[in-house]
Design a protein around this nucleic acid. Structure first.
Length: 835
RNA sequence: GCCGGAGUGGCGGAACUGGCAGACGCAAGGGACUUAAAAUCCCUCGUUGUGUAAACAACGUAUCGGUUCGAUUCCGAUCUCCGGCACCA
């Protein structure tokens, strides 16, 4: 008899069997509930590392579980195959990015197959495939038609190393999200998508996402940065030679407006140019503006940057009380947020306070701290909390939160203000100055201007012959055959857009493509009927690092496609599981540069895929980051070998053995106990997978069951009874372990005489009546402290338990004649005697 | 500063709804089998104390307090760590 799992023989055997039988083929089956299991697709770097194993086995085991549970499951995989690293790697290896990319995809697919993952590969996609990216272009044109794609000249984030622009979301700590290089600002003309049009829905709909972690939602809320406030029009005092009657400020604190003692414009504010014409201080103002524009306003320096400003000499009028106030320019007001202009209330805003102190400006208190009135002359910092209104005309005495609404209402009614909501999120810059991406389907004609490529002419293909040796500027720009084109409208000589799209466009809708049968993919981006059936994804598994990038973009795309009438859902991902990082042995993120990447091949060769899967899942629940250590892999391997050995002892006798029927059977206590544990384990494993994907505790409970089976096997139960009980135990154990150790489970299943795959079995149901025990052990406590444990009949009532326990000589001993003050009885749990 | 998450043995982790803290595994120690090793099997394993021993007692889930018959779990404050946002008006 084999005493060790022959994984190297059985793994390829069953992988081939599953693939030949098309066991995991995705099918719409209206007789079953559907389950769409989605995993964040990988960038095909070519090498699978241990982190991938952790990520993908969570989904893989769940997929197998859900199929056995009777769901029609959509589970497939694709490759995020456009992007910088392919280009860089291709240059390094002197291969075309396409050749290199497809080689990597093949390799990764192979490695995923070696783990025994049950994807339906027929639905695979690669985003660099023209059949895929033509639909990026099509979607872009739809956005353009709806006015959601536009081109503007502005300062954008530029990564000098990648030689391309990055969206705001793709700058992390001032560096490029891919390579970490410090990002600089550059003025460029770029294509943007108006994600800001959807900002309010994107933030409000987060409340609907009950299946997302608070963490992921909080990241998105912070990123979108919603703030409610008002815009207020401040008239400019007439006769100062300014060709403009007013300007608008944004504030979240209209309750403080009576304390506004000056206004501040951003140095980039459009009004500045009008202020300097005809102004005696023009030279000083221009000098100031230039200086501020050259200030280093990156993340690190911004907070330490001293506030400075200049009085323009121009006066404005506070509309609520008619007071004349000065207009300043200052470096602490940013053009990119709100209206680029503020009303300054030094008494109740710390920034304004600091500025007012520096330039000796008036400070006027309008909200008093309850019970502790403020003094403008002696206060050392702004009072930013709520309080009682003072110096605010008819609003005096009100609570400031109440006054907030009343003042806003008054200003709106008087016609110089409106309520607004401001968002921190900016439009999504999607132009990339690289080769390996989706060409933006636009043409520039001298006569007709910006002309979209007609849908019939899609895809705009990437040219094949490209010189990668010269790394400066967009590669497509240097290919005349690509650039030079006839205008689709007038036929004149025109030129193509040479920027490509951000790769995050690809991932914003790939999950819709998965829903579409490959046979139907050639004429549509996604099939409406099939998408209606499968979407939304019931479970999305992926790292938290994409919370403010991919996950926001994808939600935006889905809302846009819904508005286009192509989707009927508001949100694409019903449940989100953010699995933690698998860190290197040094506790740091795995990366090639650190040299701490763990290659799974060694473990696969030594222990096999089933052990690797079980070990990885046993280490921890999905969410936390964990540092890699292969200590303990022996334990998981031992566990599988224990199943292997005990099951093999019974393959012969159980081959062809009928499903055991226990009705009316008189069983020994040992048999009853094992049966009970079998059913308890079914319950535990089912709920651990179903409710929270905690495979670690599911495995632990199966280990307990295996320990019990071993103890039972050596007992003196009659042979017939033993076989009968073992038949039930092993049958269920194999099904329970099959999502995690599919090869071993399948092999043993067949050795037990079954002709069909174990994965065509139904997931077992537990029988509560088997789990019932005649007596349960309860805890006896004195004043909340455990004294001893004792069995009582499990059907005993509270009163019965109480009298049973109070008559126990041990209790009499403990009480030593004292009268208990109170006795708390929790049936099946404990009795607490309080004296 | 604002927002979110976490803190349990030597280690990974468990205790899901307020009811036996430390399941399961790793590591460690001891034993059986073996010529020997591997494999396998069995036992011990939070800290401190009492006891020859079976056993018993006290302490113990970051810290301090509260609610409760009873708190790792609920509430309040504090500390530490991780992550996000941040001159965002």
């Amino acid at each position: 008899m084999e005493d060790r799992l022959p994984f190297s023989e059985i793994e390829p055997k069953w992988q081939k069997y599953w693939s030949d039988k098309e066991l995991f083929k995705v099918k719409i089956d209206k007789s079953k509930p559907k389950f769409y299991l989605l995993e964040m697709y990988p960038y095909p770097s070519g090498d699978l590392h241990m982190g991938h194993v952790r990520n993908y086995i969570i989904g893989e085991a769940t997929a197998r579980y859900k199929r056995m549970k009777g769901y029609s499951v959509l589970y497939t995989m694709g490759f995020d195959s456009f992007g910088m690293p392919s280009e860089a790697a291709a240059i390094k290896h002197k291969l075309h990015p396409r050749t290199w990319t497809y080689q990597c995809i093949d390799k990764m697919r192979n490695e995923l197959n070696h783990l025994g993952i049950s994807y339906d590969w027929s639905r695979q996609l690669a985003t660099c495939d023209p059949d895929y990216y033509r639909w990026n272009q099509w979607l872009f044109l739809k956005m353009y038609e709806k006015g959601l794609a536009y081109r503007k000249y502005s300062a954008v984030n530029w990564c000098p190393k990648c030689q391309t622009v990055l969206a705001n979301e793709q700058v992390e700590d001032g560096g490029c999200w891919r390579c970490g290089e410090t990002v600089i600002q550059k003025e460029l003309e770029q294509w943007f998508l108006k994600i800001t049009d959807y900002a309010s829905q994107l933030v409000d709909d987060l409340d609907k996402l009950k299946g997302w972690s608070e963490r992921a939602k909080s990241l998105q809320r912070n990123w979108i940065g919603k703030s409610m406030g008002v815009e207020i029009n401040f008239p400019i005092v007439e006769g100062q030679g300014i060709d403009e009657k007013s300007f608008t400020v944004f504030t979240t604190r209209p309750d403080t407006i009576y304390g506004c003692t000056y206004c501040v414009l951003s140095p980039e504010h459009p009004l500045v140019s009008k202020i300097i014409s005809n102004n005696p201080q023009a030279a000083d103002i221009i000098a100031f503006v230039d200086r501020v524009k050259n200030q280093d306003r990156t993340v690190e320096t911004l907070l330490e940057l001293p506030k400075e400003g200049i009085d323009t000499g121009i006066k404005a009028i506070n509309p609520v009380n008619g007071e004349q106030i000065s207009i300043f320019l200052a470096n602490y007001v940013l053009m990119g947020y709100g209206t680029g202009a503020i009303m300054a209330v030094p008494s109740h805003d710390q920034r304004d306070f600091e500025f007012a102190k520096k330039y000796d400006l008036k400070i006027k208190v309008v909200i008093d701290k309850p019970g502790e009135p403020l003094n403008a002359d002696t206060m050392t910092c702004a009072y930013e909390e709520a309080g009682i209104m003072v110096n605010s005309m008819e609003f005096n005495g009100l609570d400031s939160e109440e006054a907030w609404e009343k003042i806003a209402d008054k200003m709106v009614a008087e016609g110089y203000s409106k309520r607004t909501v401001n968002y921190r999120i900016r439009d999504w810059g999607i132009s990339r100055q690289r080769y390996w991406g989706t060409p933006i389907p636009m043409i520039y004609c001298e006569k007709c201007g910006t002309v979209p490529v007609p849908e019939d002419n899609l895809p705009v293909l990437l040219p094949e012959d490209v010189d990668f040796s010269d790394y400066s500027g967009s590669p497509l720009k240097k290919i005349p055959e690509f650039v030079n084109v006839k205008c689709p409208q007038c036929g004149a000589e025109a030129r193509r857009e040479t920027d490509t799209m951000d790769g995050f466009i690809d991932s914003s809708w790939y999950f819709l493509r998965y829903c579409t049968d490959p046979d139907k993919r050639s004429h549509v981006a996604f099939d409406i009927e099939e998408t209606k059936y499968w979407m939304a994804a019931d479970l999305y598994i992926g790292g938290i690092d994409h919370a403010t990038k991919h996950l926001i973009y994808a939600r935006f795309f889905v809302k846009f496609l819904r508005d286009l009438g192509l989707l009927s859902i508001d949100e694409p991902f019903t449940n989100l599981v953010n699995q933690g990082w698998l860190l290197g042995t040094d506790g740091l993120k795995m990366s090639k540069s650190r040299g701490n990447v763990v290659d799974p091949n060694k473990m696969l060769a030594e222990y096999g895929a089933d052990t690797a899967r079980v070990f990885m899942m046993f280490a921890a629940p999905p969410e936390p980051d964990i540092a890699w250590s292969d200590e303990g892999v022996e334990g998981s391997h031992r566990f599988l070998n224990r199943i292997w050995r005990i099951a093999n002892q019974y393959t012969e006798v159980l081959s062809g053995y009928p499903t055991p029927d226990f009705t009316g059977a008189q069983l020994s206590d040992k048999s009853l106990s094992l049966r009970r544990n079998v059913h308890k384990t079914i319950k535990k494993v089912t709920s651990d997978i179903e409710d929270r994907f905690h495979f670690n505790t599911a495995i632990a409970s199966m280990m307990e069951l295996v320990n019990d089976i071993y103890k039972f096997d050596t007992s003196d139960v009659s042979l017939d009874e033993k076989i009968k009980v073992m038949a039930e135990a092993l049958h269920n154990l194999l099904i329970l372990i099959s999502p995690l150790a599919p090869h071993m489970a399948e092999e043993l299943w067949h050795r037990m005489g079954h002709q069909e795959s174990i994965f065509l079995q139904s997931w077992p149901l537990f029988d509560l009546s088997v789990m019932l025990e005649e007596s349960v052990e309860i805890v006896v406590q004195l004043n909340g402290k455990v004294r001893y444990r004792t069995p009582v009949p499990s059907n005993a009532s509270q009163d019965e338990i109480k009298s049973l326990i109070m008559e126990d000589p041990k209790v009499k001993d403990i009480l030593a004649g004292k009268e208990p003050k109170k006795v708390v009885v929790v049936p099946k749990k404990l009795v607490n005697i309080v004296i």
